[in-house]
Structures are given as C-alpha cells and as structure tokens.
Design a protein around this nucleic acid. Structure first.
Length: 565
RNA sequence: AGCCCCAUAGUGUAGUUUGGUUUAGCACCUCAGGCUCUGAAUCUGAUGACUCCAGUUCAAAUCUGGAUGGGGCUGCCA
C-alpha cells in the first residue's frame, strides 16, 4: 500500500472528516491531458472508490488568457475514457469567484491582505532572493478601510491592468519565497470563457485552490511534487479563512511524484514544436503521449490503468520504461483482441495442385484461448499471399519457415511444400510455387508428421486492400530532448491485405493480426470502403532478437578474421 | 547560497511507522531452457539492490546524527 492510502486509512481510523474521503482532479482547461495526468486522475479517483468516497472534477480556470470550453470538453472525454467518474460533481473554480471575492474582503478586514500599488518588476525586486529576505511593500500597512475601498475599485475597473494587486500579508522574510506576501488578485481585462466580462480581477492559483477544496469538502487534495512548497501557503489561507469563519473545513494537500516515461516527453512547449512543425498530425496523433493520442493509437484504457497500478505512488523521481506500458498493452490485448490474418508485405504463393477456380471457407477460431468468442469463415483458394519475410531462398541456420523443398503449415489451413521460385528479369522473387496436402486440412497430418513453422496467409482474390499505419516510438532516444530526437520511422504507411471479416468491423476494434501485432481500426477514418488500420504495437519478436544476435556475432567474427589477416 | 523534498537490482516498487519471523519479496527488462497450429501467449530457471560513514542495540534496509548524490523553489501561470 502506498503512503497516501496509508494516510487516508489512518484518517478514517481516527474519524478525521467524520470518516469521509473526498478527492478531486483539478485541471486547468488550457491544454491536452497526457499520460502524466492520467496518473493524477486515476489516483484520486481510485482512492475515492476504494474508501467509498467521492471524486470531483473541478476545472481550475482562474487565468482566462489561455482557457477554453473546447479544452473542458476534451478533458472530460479523456477522463471518462480512462474510467474515472465524477458523477454529477462537475465544478469550476470560476463558479466560486463571488465567494472568493467575499473571502478576500474578509481577509482584508482581518488585516491579512492588502492592496499593493507596486508593479511586477518592483514586486520581484522586493521579493528578495533565495538567500536574502524580501522587504515589506510600502503599501503593506494601509488601513483596512483604504484596502477595502481600493479592492472594490479594482473590481469596478477603476485601475489599469497590472497597476495594483491584492496581496496576502504573510512574511516577507520567510525562507519560502511563496510566503513573501503572495499575490491573491490581479487586474486582467480579459474575457473569461465562462464568466465573460463579469470580472476584470482574477484570483491566483494559490489563493483559489485550497479554498475551492474547502468549499467542496475535499478531504485529501492530491497533487504532484512541484506543489510541495505551496503547501504552507495552502494551509495559511485555509487557516486564516477558518479563523474568520468563512469556511469550516480544512482539506489536506498531499504530494506525490510525477510520472515520466522513457522515449516520451510531456513538456507542452516541446510537444507543440512537433505539432507546429508537422512532425505529427496533431495533438491527438497516435504517437503522442497525449491521452487522446494513445486512444487513437489503440491503447486500451484498461492497459493504462494496469500500468498506473504497477508504477505505484511515491515521492521519488520516476523514470519508467516505455516497455512496461507496452507490456501492459500486450497483456490486455492478448486477452481481449480477436485474431485475424493479414499480410503486410505480400508474396504470391500458387498452389499448383489446388483446383483452378475452387474456393473453400475454413472455419477458424477468433481466439485460441477463448472459445466463447466463436469462429469465422475465412476464404481459401489457389492463389494466396504470404509475408515476404516468411520465405527465404537461402535461409540462415535457425530459419524454420518456407524455403525451397521445405514443408510448413498455413495457419488453420493446410501443409504446403515449396517446389519452385519464380523471379523477374532482375532476379527478384515474384512468386513461389507450392503443393498443398489435402490430407492436412485443419492443420495436422494424419500420418503424424510435423512441421517446424506455421505461417499466416490470406487468399489473394478475397483479401481486402487496406491502408495500414505502422506506428513506432515517437523518439529515438530514451531521454528525448524534443524535435532533435524525432524518430523518422515512427510512422510508415503501407498497403496491406486483410482477410474479409475485418471489413465488417466497427471503427475502434482491436485485433491481433496473427504473428504481426495488435491493430486497431481507425476511430476517425475506418469504414467498410476505406479500411484504415493503426498498428497499436507489435508482438514480442524473439526472432528479431535471434537475427540481431547472429548479425552481431557474424560481425565480430569478421572483425576477428580481419585482425588475423 | 538559504529553505524544502527524495535515496532498495537496469527500471518501477514491497518491506522502514511497531528493529529480529527476509537466504531482502514482486513486476518489467535481460539471459537460458520447456511447451506450442502465432518465433505470440504460457511455464521453469538464472543474473541482479538496501548511497556512504558513525552511533544506539544482543540484533539495523528499518531508529539517531552527519556526509554524499538527485530534485524542487526567486510568474501578477497552474
């Protein structure tokens, strides 16, 4: 059990908050949710679930300059997709503006806040530094009446943007810079996407966040480590407001470390460069570490949840293997994806002893480990397509697949034996001629003879031509900086041939293309007539490893040879 | 430089609160092998860690102090 759950359990045991558990996720609607946010969302949601508590979604929309309703809708969709449910508790900090204003007035009356006429630069100068204390603002000791009057006039629009702010009167000598009379309100003549032009002063994050939590009765306010230094300020506001009776509940902020994944960046600025530079099709490109991107790629939400569960919750800096996320995706899809056959890089196979013009429909199980998923009919005929990689004229030692004179199995069909290779003028193999053994229908020989390999196939005349988008990792480096580490091979679009049953699928269907990987019918572009399919992820490929090892040992051998010479 | 946070195999994490029951557990990765109508899945096995120093104690990954290493903090962003 992680440290946050331990705190929650102890609070329940002590009957703190009357034993209630209430969490929230507080995004600012100014950008796309990424895999890191998924952790925050799912942690808060699942803790509420586990302890029979409640989970709120609250948009922290206190800076109108970059927020919009489009982001609100997109974020809601992402959270829903992830499986976190806020039920009817959708809130906006902007709904609390009037209340927050009233709280601020209370703080002024209590002598805990003042209007400061210093400009941005002056405030920065007077804040001091990491080692030196700040100096008090000359406006720090204004009378309550003057502060009240000025604050009211700030709201009414009497002053220019940036000319005055409301500050909390905390401690200009605090070693925590955030406690040096932080800004509570600034004047900003910008229309808000929800409150329009009702306000020209907007509350800051530090002032808004804990108060919104208190208003909603949040018990455990979970956030990432960068807010750790904000906690004393969070507590200060809550305590002062508690003292003057403006609120009656004290939430507790707890910080955990952010999620970083190898081969990935979540920096908005750097991701934007990829979008702007046309390296990806948009923020929701299937290669992006953005939730909408992962969804388009075909990563199941359940895999992301599993991943999050395995990663855990601590305060240590994390750097998690992309391989772990990929392993989760494979695990979920292995269980959930129906199997079909598709050929991505075709080579024509002619069954010389199969009757011309004949076709038959083979009944093939949709999932080898799950009979309840039923079967489908797959057409078989004289002319087939197999994967070009599955035939080698001059095979290396451990290559078990088709080659001249060798017998292999066509998956769920017949044994075939290769007798002949047909080449064009430049020596490229254009087709291979095989004979099939009618006795081996279904895939096994009555005489008990074995084959070493099984390869997949489609019937050439029945197969559906389709656009296949082969996605790979966005970056070439484990710790990418940005555009300079862009993987040019992260997307390859090819024409592939899929068995006819795929044409009947809905957009957003997961498949395993046997021996190739997990694929996903494109959510936006797939239809019966234009088949567009994303490769979500390849299968684990031990053969590729063997090949690599061979290559490297051969190179080493060559080097040794050279040395001898 | 001041303040705050963190420290277990390649990676992530359990164990630390309440010291012994741990030859430090699990997962991913890696390697070897078994099985196989997917070179997939699955199964078996292997390699591999308590940052350091000092103290307390019969006993320290666990408690104390210090050091070292890593991270955060000087927006009228969140």
């Amino acid at each position: 059990m992680d440290f946050i759950r331990k705190i929650v359990e102890e609070d329940i045991r002590n009957n703190k908050n009357e034993g209630r558990v209430h969490t929230r996720f507080p995004p600012e609607p100014n950008g796309w949710m990424h895999i890191g946010h998924a952790m925050a969302i799912y942690l808060s949601y699942s803790i509420a679930q586990e302890y029979s508590g409640l989970f709120n979604l609250r948009f922290d929309d206190t800076d109108p300059s970059k927020e919009s309703m489009e982001y609100v809708e997109a974020i809601k969709e992402d959270i829903q997709w992830l499986g976190a449910d806020w039920e009817d508790r959708l809130y906006f900090a902007s709904d609390y503006f009037e209340k927050l204003y009233d709280f601020a007035v209370g703080l002024i009356k209590a002598g805990k806040a003042y209007v400061c006429d210093l400009n941005v630069d002056e405030i920065r100068e007077q804040r001091g530094s990491l080692t030196e204390p700040g100096v008090n603002s000359p406006f720090r000791d204004r009378s309550v009446e003057e502060n009240l009057d000025l604050f009211k006039r700030m709201r009414e629009g009497e002053f220019e943007d940036g000319s005055r702010v409301l500050r909390a009167k905390v401690d200009m000598a605090s070693p925590n810079l955030l406690m040096r009379d932080p800004i509570m309100y600034r004047i900003k003549r910008v229309s808000h996407y929800r409150t329009g032009d009702d306000w020209i002063i907007y509350p800051s994050y530090d002032y808004t966040h804990g108060e919104s939590d208190a208003i909603e009765g949040i018990t455990h306010s979970l956030c990432s480590l960068e807010f750790e230094t904000h906690r004393p300020l969070y507590d200060w506001f809550v305590d002062e407001l508690l003292a003057i009776g403006k609120i009656e509940h004290k939430p507790r902020q707890i910080e955990f470390s952010r999620l970083n994944v190898t081969y990935t960046i979540t920096s908005k600025r750097r991701l934007l460069e990829l979008v702007d530079g046309g390296y990806v099709s948009g923020w929701d490109d299937p290669r992006m570490p953005i939730l909408a991107g992962l969804r388009n790629r075909g990563f199941p939400a359940s895999a992301i949840r599993m991943f999050l569960g395995k990663v855990g919750v601590t305060k240590r800096k994390k750097n998690i293997d992309m391989g772990l996320l990929e392993a989760c995706v494979r695990e979920e899809l292995d269980r959930d994806a129906n199997r079909v056959m598709a050929v991505l890089n075709p080579l024509t196979v002619i069954l010389t002893n199969y009757p011309e013009g004949q076709e038959e429909y083979l009944e093939i199980p949709n999932h080898p480990k799950d009979e309840s998923r039923g079967t489908r009919k797959v057409p078989f005929s004289k002319v087939l397509l197999i994967e070009r990689d599955d035939f080698m004229e001059d095979p290396p030692k451990k290559f078990y697949r088709l080659t001249l004179g060798r017998e292999v199995r066509l998956r769920n069909a017949y044994f075939i034996k290769c007798n002949d290779v047909v080449k064009d003028k430049s020596g490229n193999i254009v087709e291979v001629h095989c004979t099939y053994d009618p006795e081996t229908k279904g895939g096994s020989a009555p005489d008990g003879r074995k084959v070493r390999a099984t390869i997949h196939w489609v019937s050439k005349s029945h197969a559906l031509k389709s656009e296949i988008r082969l996605y790979d990792r966005l970056f070439t480096r484990e710790d990418p900086i940005g555009i300079s580490d862009y993987n040019p091979d992260s997307l390859t679009t090819i024409t592939g041939f899929v068995e006819p049953s795929v044409g009947e699928a809905e957009p957003g269907t997961h498949y395993q293309f046997e021996r190739l990987g997990y694929f996903f019918t494109n959510l936006q572009e797939f239809s019966k007539d234009t088949i567009v399919i994303n490769r979500t992820i390849t299968l684990r490929d031990t053969w590729a490893k063997i090949k690599k090892q061979h290559l490297s040992t051969r190179k080493k051998g060559q080097r040794k040879q050279k040395k001898k010479n």
